[in-house]
Design a protein around this nucleic acid. Structure first.
Length: 464
RNA sequence: GGCCCUAUCGUCUAGUGGUUAGGACGUCGGCCUCUCACGCCGAAAACAGGGGUUCGACUCCCCUUGGGGCUACCA
C-alpha cells in the first residue's frame, strides 16, 4: 500500500511551499488508495514552538488535507535510541568528543588549503569511552558512492567523498533531522517520499542511513521549488507566505490547492480541478522538474473560477467571515441568493462580501461619478412613472419587472441604460452591480420602492 | 569554492527527432449587454547562446551563460 507523509518542522507558520508539498503527498496517497501521515519534526528544541504546530494543523485542516495519522518526533526518543544502539552494535556509528573549537579550527585550515571542509575522523577509531565528557554521535560513512533514482530527476549520483561522518545525535542527546527522518520513515513504512528538491543532497545522506540499517529506501520524488517574482526563493518580501494569510485574503481553500498543485504539475490543458478530480487524477509522473514562479494574479483567476463553481449555499459559508454584521439580520436563503448574483463578479471572498452589502443595507450615499452621469433631471419623470408601474406589480417574476421597464422605455422613448442606471444607483449607491431585475427580485417590492423613491428625490429639478 | 538540480511566450505549462511550437493567466482589440462582471471571438508574445550527433533538432550529447539548492551539534 502506498504510504506518504508530510513532515514539517514547527519553526514557523505553514507557508505555501510547505502546503504544496503536503498537497502532493496527500493527493498521491489518496489517488492510490493509500495513507497520508503527518509527522511533526520537532527535534530542534530551540526553534520548535507549539503555536506553530497549531498553525500548521489549522492550515492543513482549512485546506481539507486530512491525515490518517499524526506523530511527533519529540515523543519518539526511545525509538531513535533503539536504532542508534543497532548502529553501535554493528560498529557503524561512534562517539565523537571533538570540541566545537577544534572543529571550527579544522574547518578553517581546510578552507585555507583549498579543501572542502570535512570531519577528519579524529574520533572514529577511539577504543575507550571517555566518561564525563560531552560527545556527539557520528556515523561511519561507507566508502561507496550513492546512487538512486528520483521520479522527477531520473538517475542521481553522489560521490561519498562529498560527505563525511555526519552527526546523527547532538551532545544534548537529541537526534538530528537526517537520522530521525529515516528512522521514522522506516518505522512508519513510508513508501514514497515527495518533498522539495532542496532535499536532494539530504536524500543522498539519508540513503547512506538506509544502507547502514540494511533497509531499502522509499521511492523519491523531488519536486521543484516555488520562487518569487524575482526568481529568488520565496520569502517575506514576496508578500503573503503563510497559508492563513491567503485564507484571510478571501482565497478559497480549493482554489489555493488547485493553484499550488498546478505549479509543477500538469494534466494536459486542464487548469481548474475540483478536489474530487484531484483525488482521482493526481499522479507523480506528470510532475515537472524545474522551479516555478508564484504568480498571484493567476491565483486570483483560479479563485474566481472556484467561486463561480461553488453552490451559492456552500459559498455563503465561506463568505460569512467577511460579511458585514448588518448582513446577519438576514436568513441564509436570502443571503445565498445575494451571493449568487455576485459570483461572476468577485475574485475574492472579501470582494464578494463587500459587493453584496447593499442587499442588507440601503446605500447611504450615491457614487459621485455615476450620479453625475445618470441622475439627470430628464429621467425624473420617467422614474416616477416606472415607480408607479412597479408598485402595481407583485415582484413575483422577472418578466413582470421587465414589462414595467419596457413600458417606461416606450412611453418616454428612452434606452434601457437611461433608466436602469439611475435605478441601480438608487438600489446600490453604485453604477456597477448585478443585473437590475435580479436585484429587484431579491430586495423585494417594499425595499426596492423605498430606495427608488429616495433616488428620485435626490434628482434635482430643473431651475426653470 | 565544491557538489547537485534546472533552462519553451512576462508567468504557469504541453511537447519526448519531422508541429503553422498548443493551452492557461496577464496584456491589447472586438462581440454580447441595463452597469460591472461572466461568456464568446481575435491579436501580440517563447524554444538562453555556441558546438556536435542526425537526412532532419525545442526534443539526444558536450560546453558556456543564467537561475535555484546543498555544503550546520537547522529542518
Amino acid at each position: 500500500m502506498v504510504k506518504t507523509r508530510f513532515a514539517p518542522s514547527p519553526t514557523g507558520h505553514l507557508h505555501i511551499g510547505g502546503l504544496r508539498t503536503a498537497i502532493f503527498n496527500y493527493f498521491f496517497a489518496k489517488a492510490n488508495s493509500g495513507e497520508f501521515i503527518l509527522r511533526i519534526e520537532d527535534t530542534d528544541r530551540e526553534r520548535s514552538r507549539k503555536e506553530y504546530t497549531e498553525a500548521i494543523l489549522e492550515g492543513l485542516k482549512w485546506c481539507s488535507i486530512n491525515w490518517d495519522d499524526i506523530c511527533y518526533q519529540s515523543k519518539r526518543q526511545d525509538i531513535y535510541e533503539k536504532y542508534l544502539q543497532e548502529l553501535f552494535n554493528n560498529g557503524l556509528a561512534y562517539r565523537c568528543y571533538c570540541s566545537k573549537e577544534r572543529l571550527e579550527k579544522l574547518k578553517q585550515e581546510q578552507i585555507e588549503k583549498g579543501e572542502n571542509p570535512h570531519y577528519d575522523g579524529h574520533c572514529r577509531n577511539l577504543k575507550e569511552e571517555i566518561k564525563d565528557k560531552n560527545f556527539v554521535v557520528r556515523i561511519k560513512l561507507p566508502s561507496e558512492d550513492i546512487d538512486f533514482k528520483d521520479v522527477v530527476h531520473g538517475d542521481m549520483h553522489f560521490s561519498y567523498k562529498e560527505f563525511d561522518d555526519f552527526i546523527i545525535r547532538r551532545s544534548d542527546g537529541s537526534f538530528m533531522y537526517n537520522f530521525t527522518n529515516v528512522v521514522d520513515d522506516i518505522e512508519c513504512g513510508i513508501t514514497h517520499v515527495i518533498r522539495g528538491d532542496d532535499h536532494l543532497t539530504n536524500t543522498a545522506k539519508q540513503i547512506v542511513l538506509y544502507r547502514l540499517f540494511g533497509k531499502n529506501e522509499p521511492v523519491y520524488a523531488h519536486v521543484p521549488m516555488i520562487l518569487g517574482e524575482d526568481k529568488t526563493r520565496l520569502s517575506k518580501r514576496h508578500g503573503a507566505q503563510s497559508v492563513l494569510e491567503y485564507r484571510d485574503m478571501g482565497i478559497l481553500p480549493d482554489a489555493l490547492v488547485n493553484y499550488l498543485i498546478r505549479l509543477g504539475w500538469s494534466y494536459g490543458d486542464k487548469e481548474i480541478f475540483t478536489k474530487d478530480e484531484l483525488l482521482e487524477l493526481f499522479n507523480i509522473e506528470n510532475l515537472n522538474n524545474s522551479a516555478a514562479v508564484f504568480n498571484p494574479e493567476k491565483l486570483l483567476w483560479v479563485n474566481a473560477e472556484h467561486i463561480k463553481l461553488m453552490s451559492p449555499r456552500k459559498l455563503l459559508e465561506y463568505v460569512k467571515p467577511f460579511m458585514d454584521k448588518r448582513c446577519f439580520d438576514y436568513d441564509d436563503d436570502y443571503l445565498a441568493r445575494a451571493v449568487e448574483t455576485m459570483q461572476p463578479r468577485a475574485e475574492t471572498l472579501k470582494e464578494l462580501a463587500s459587493g453584496m452589502l447593499f442587499y442588507c443595507t440601503a446605500p447611504e450615499d450615491y457614487e459621485q461619478k455615476g450620479s453625475k452621469k445618470y441622475l439627470k433631471e430628464s429621467v425624473k419623470e420617467p422614474l416616477i412613472f416606472l415607480l408607479e408601474k412597479l408598485k402595481e406589480t407583485d415582484f413575483s417574476s422577472e418578466d413582470e419587472l421587465k414589462k414595467a421597464f419596457e413600458e417606461t422605455m416606450e412611453k418616454f422613448e428612452l434606452k434601457m441604460v437611461k433608466i436602469a442606471q439611475p435605478v441601480r444607483i438608487g438600489l446600490t449607491g453604485r453604477s456597477a452591480a448585478p443585473g437590475i431585475y435580479e436585484m429587484l427580485m431579491i430586495l423585494g417590492k417594499d425595499e426596492s420602492v423605498k430606495r427608488i423613491k429616495k433616488v428620485i428625490d435626490a434628482i434635482p429639478y430643473k431651475t426653470s
